[in-house]
Every structure is written in C-alpha cells, then in structure tokens.
C-alpha cells in the first residue's frame, strides 16, 4: 500500500480507538437528535418554525454540531498534539513529508463528519420521518462549502496555536461561537433577528442547509462567504503552519 493509503488507514484506526472522538464526534449528534425527538411536543408542527416540526427545523443545527465537533475541536487538537509530541518532526526524518500526515488527518476527519451527518439524516428520517433534504444539489453544495470553511478554520487554529493547550482553548471558543450562531444552544427563532441573520454567514452556514433541506435553493451570498472563508483561512494556515 502507498504511504498515504497506509497513513489514512492508521489515522482512521486511531480515530475509532479514541472513545472521545468516536462517541462525541461520530455518535453524539445523532443521539441528540434522537433524544429531542423523543419529546412528543417537539414532533408537533409549530407556527414559530413556519409550520415545521421542531425536529425538522433543528436537524440542520445538529449537522452543524457534527461538523463542528470534528472540524473545530478534534482536528486542531490532534494536529497540535502531533506537533508538540514531535510526531510531525519524526516524519521529517523519513522520505515521506509530514504533509501527507496532514492530508490523511483531513481525509479521516472529513470522512467522519460526512458519516456523522449521514447518520443524523438517516436516523432522523427512519425514526421520526424527518424528510430527506429536498433540494439535493443545493444541500450537497451548502454542505461541502460549509464543511470546507469549518475545516479551514480548524487548520488555522492548528497553525496558530503554539501548543496543544492553546489549540484546545482557541478551538473551544470557535466551536462555541459556531454552535451559538448555528442554533445549537438556542433554536434560531428564539435568537434576536440580527444574530440569526449574522448566523447565516458563520460557517458552516446553517441557513443554507435549512433552505436546501426544505426545498429552496440556498442563497448565493452566504455560500460565497463560506468559499471565501475556506480559501482565506486555508491559505493563511498553509503559510504559517510549522512542523515543529
């Protein structure tokens, strides 16, 4: 097997072996959705949410959580630890550049976010009849751009933080902001309008996901903001990332 293939295989095993990343990263979002759906009132259509049920309205926020937990907390934590412990440095002594380890980490974490989001969609649909995203292309585009922006921010944290502790502090702040604007802490209809509108532009862009889910094409400007965030954060991260 090629070095990159082998790296992806090993990093995937390490991801699954860590109970924190496995349970919190992969399963928690689905558990939250299933738990909320168990409350009968949340399965009743409501005026506040444009006649939707809470469980339908909240599903995109659970996706935000799935992407955020992995991209904003796990990814930078692992990379900062790899730098601090000299894992990246040791790879520099071999013919394979540690860049490949970064790529393997990205592949594994992207795969995990994708799996976690798919679990949310599937479980919501099977257990509570949450409809599948109606505007499939719009949803795919919003998801890909959103996840790319979140992961670029995660890489920026990994690049900026001098230590694993600093990475964890910085990523916690970003994670909480993303969750707040993504309507995870408080459903967005309960947030002041200005904050909810600002949330449209905070990665991964919960409104675009919700629009596509309910069948409307997502608005262009928030998607452009996701793309711009991804390019800017990614470029800065690539410029300043240190191997040791």
């Amino acid at each position: 097997m090629s070095a990159l293939g082998k790296l992806i295989q090993i990093e995937a095993r390490l991801f699954v072996r860590d109970p924190m990343t496995f349970v919190v990263g992969l399963l928690l979002p689905t558990v939250v959705l299933l738990g909320l759906g168990a409350v009968p009132m949340l399965r009743e259509p409501a005026e506040d949410m444009g006649g939707q049920r809470f469980i339908d309205y909240f599903a995109p926020s659970v996706i935000v959580m799935a992407v955020g937990v992995i991209g904003l907390t796990n990814l930078p934590a692992v990379l900062a630890a790899y730098r601090e412990q000299g894992v990246l440095r040791r790879m520099r002594t071999t013919p394979v550049h540690p860049m490949k380890l970064l790529v393997a980490q990205l592949v594994v974490n992207l795969g995990a976010s994708l799996l976690s989001a798919a679990l949310v969609v599937a479980a919501g649909n099977l257990v509570y009849g949450v409809p599948l995203p109606k505007h499939a292309w719009g949803f795919a585009i919003a998801f890909v751009l959103g996840i790319t922006a979140v992961f670029a921010l995660g890489m920026l944290v990994a690049a900026l933080a001098p230590t694993a502790r600093a990475a964890s502090g910085l990523s916690t702040v970003l994670f909480m902001l993303a969750m707040f604007f993504g309507g995870v802490y408080l459903p967005r209809f309960m947030l002041p309008d200005a904050i909810a509108r600002a949330g449209d532009f905070v990665p991964p862009g919960v409104q675009s996901l919700l629009d596509a889910w309910t069948g409307t094409a997502p608005a262009v400007v928030p998607l452009a903001v996701m793309a711009a965030t991804a390019v800017a954060a990614g470029a800065v991260a690539a410029r300043i990332f240190k191997w040791e």
Binding site: R17, Y82, T94
Partner: peptide, 26 residues
Amino acid sequence: IQLQESRLPDRIRVGEALDLYASFYK
C-alpha cells in the same frame, strides 16, 4: 534518524508503527 524527545500517538501499536514507517521507504 533517531531524534531526542520525539513521541508517537499514544494509541498506535508497535507493529502498526513499524509497518507504517516501513511503507515510507523503497
């Protein structure tokens, strides 16, 4: 090259680490 103070991820197994590093060389 053997470096001072260079660790591996805690959960990687001895056999895995060696197979991984072996895959880096022709």
